[in-house]
Amino acid sequence: MNVKASAPTHAPDTRGLWLGLLGVTIFAMTLPMTRIAVGTPGGPQMSGAFLALGRAAVAAVLSMAFLAATRAPWPLRRDWLPLALTSAGVVFGFPLLTSIAMRHVEAVHASVIVGVLPLATAAVGAWLHGQRPSGGFWACAAAGSALVIAFALLHNGSGDVLLAPADLLLLAAMGCAAVGYGYGGQLSQRMRADHVICWALVVAFPLTLPGAWMTWPTGGISPAAWGAFAYVAVFSMWLGFFAWYRGLALGGTVRVSQVQLVQPFLSMLFAVPLLGERIDAATIAFGVAVIATVFVGKKMPVRAGAGN
């Protein structure tokens, strides 16, 4: 009579991981598209400041329409500060820093720096949600992050063991993203996930709109650059977060964040047809090793904190 009493309890976790993967796949196009939009030192397109602020302004307009169409309630008083911190991380920090850096590095190289993001997101998520990942979980996260950092150093083109200034900007961007993901994931547990990013964009709109206006490009911008701008505005800055924050809410920030370990290698795959960049055997080997840490880490226990 109680055959269904033991129905699978991991269905939300699994859905969360799949939604997280969908969000990561959308985000994986961000670096190649950003490279197209800002150009190179020898062939500049739009500025990094305009790309970051302009894409947020466009996404904010879409967000206002979406919030009105779905009759979204106003955030509670306690939600405004987390929304502001989410906005600071994913609307300002990450887009601005990556947009500036991407003019000076190739997408294949820059994408591997994203490999430190899962560990940073897991750390922020564990602190915010009172979760206690096991030692095995942290070992897998650290191993995956170490692999992608080693890959970045081996492919920095200079032969030394120092990260370039653009790499430091990208690492700072990862810290901003981790904070935005952590607070956004926390808000998604009590708000609709799609409403979280919409409100974060609306909060930033009084700054992003005039900022985009003041940094509007005056030179000739190619159609490809405008197309890349449209992608990062609609998908990277908006729709991707619908899936990502919902995945974090269902599967837990600490665990779902590890799906981001595949993002660098998806970005590389996209960079080949979009930018004509190349992937060698070492890239494939590192990719297989990093992806393996995702699946091993998924099996490791993540315990709730004493206050939960």
Score class of each variant (00 low, 15 high):
residue 209 L to C: 10
residue 272 V to N: 11
residue 90 V to D: 03
residue 150 A to L: 13
residue 225 A to E: 08
residue 72 A to E: 09
residue 198 C to H: 04
residue 47 S to I: 10
residue 258 Q to Y: 01
residue 121 T to Q: 11
residue 55 R to A: 12
residue 45 Q to R: 03
residue 35 R to P: 09
residue 118 P to S: 02
residue 172 A to I: 00
residue 12 P to R: 05
residue 164 A to D: 02
residue 197 I to M: 14
residue 122 A to Q: 07
residue 68 A to L: 14
residue 124 V to Q: 13
residue 118 P to F: 00
residue 233 A to L: 08
residue 306 A to Y: 10
residue 160 D to V: 02
residue 85 L to F: 13
residue 95 P to L: 06
residue 282 A to N: 10
residue 175 G to N: 11
residue 264 P to D: 03
residue 231 Y to A: 06
residue 264 P to W: 10
residue 239 L to T: 13
residue 236 S to N: 12
residue 29 M to R: 03
residue 237 M to K: 03
residue 265 F to I: 10
residue 83 L to I: 02
residue 272 V to Y: 07
residue 221 I to Q: 08
residue 260 Q to D: 01
residue 253 T to C: 08
residue 122 A to I: 03
residue 195 H to N: 10
residue 243 A to L: 05
residue 115 G to L: 05
residue 194 D to I: 03
residue 207 L to T: 12
residue 182 G to K: 04
residue 266 L to C: 05
residue 93 G to M: 06
residue 231 Y to W: 13
residue 20 G to C: 06
residue 240 G to T: 10
residue 158 S to Y: 12
residue 158 S to V: 02
residue 242 F to K: 01
residue 11 A to E: 06
residue 249 A to I: 04
residue 57 A to G: 06
residue 223 P to S: 09
residue 177 A to C: 13
residue 85 L to N: 01
residue 229 F to A: 13
residue 26 I to C: 15
residue 120 A to N: 05
residue 143 A to P: 07
residue 149 I to Q: 01
residue 180 G to Q: 08
residue 49 A to E: 14
residue 241 F to Y: 15
residue 8 P to V: 05
residue 171 L to F: 14
residue 66 F to I: 14
residue 249 A to Y: 09
residue 239 L to W: 12
residue 297 G to R: 06
residue 115 G to E: 02
residue 133 P to M: 05
residue 178 A to K: 08
residue 226 W to D: 03
residue 259 V to Y: 04
residue 282 A to F: 11
residue 144 G to N: 08
residue 167 D to I: 04
residue 261 L to W: 03
residue 301 P to V: 08
residue 308 N to V: 10
residue 57 A to F: 10
residue 268 M to C: 04
residue 304 A to I: 01
residue 273 P to L: 08
residue 75 P to N: 12
residue 271 A to Y: 06
residue 110 A to C: 08
residue 195 H to T: 03
residue 179 V to E: 01
residue 195 H to R: 11
residue 138 W to D: 04
residue 70 T to S: 13
residue 287 G to A: 09
residue 58 V to H: 06
residue 147 L to V: 13
residue 307 G to C: 06
residue 135 G to A: 15
residue 308 N to K: 12
residue 298 K to R: 15
residue 199 W to Y: 15
residue 235 F to M: 15
residue 274 L to W: 13
residue 19 L to P: 09
residue 106 E to F: 07
residue 188 S to F: 07
residue 152 A to F: 05
residue 233 A to D: 04
residue 267 S to P: 08
residue 285 A to Y: 10
residue 203 V to S: 06
residue 2 N to Q: 12
residue 235 F to I: 12
residue 66 F to A: 15
residue 47 S to W: 07
residue 41 P to E: 08
residue 65 A to P: 00
residue 167 D to E: 12
residue 32 P to E: 09
residue 23 G to T: 01
residue 262 V to M: 14
residue 252 G to Q: 09
residue 75 P to T: 07
residue 117 L to W: 03
residue 272 V to S: 00
residue 106 E to D: 15
residue 135 G to C: 04
residue 237 M to F: 00
residue 52 A to V: 14
residue 248 L to Y: 07
residue 77 R to W: 11
residue 138 W to Q: 04
residue 90 V to Q: 00
residue 48 G to D: 03
residue 209 L to S: 11
residue 271 A to M: 02
residue 86 T to D: 07
residue 218 T to C: 01
residue 205 F to V: 00
residue 264 P to E: 08
residue 272 V to A: 05
residue 198 C to I: 12
residue 295 F to S: 07
residue 40 T to R: 14
residue 277 E to W: 06
residue 302 V to S: 13
residue 247 G to I: 03
residue 212 A to Y: 07
residue 27 F to T: 01
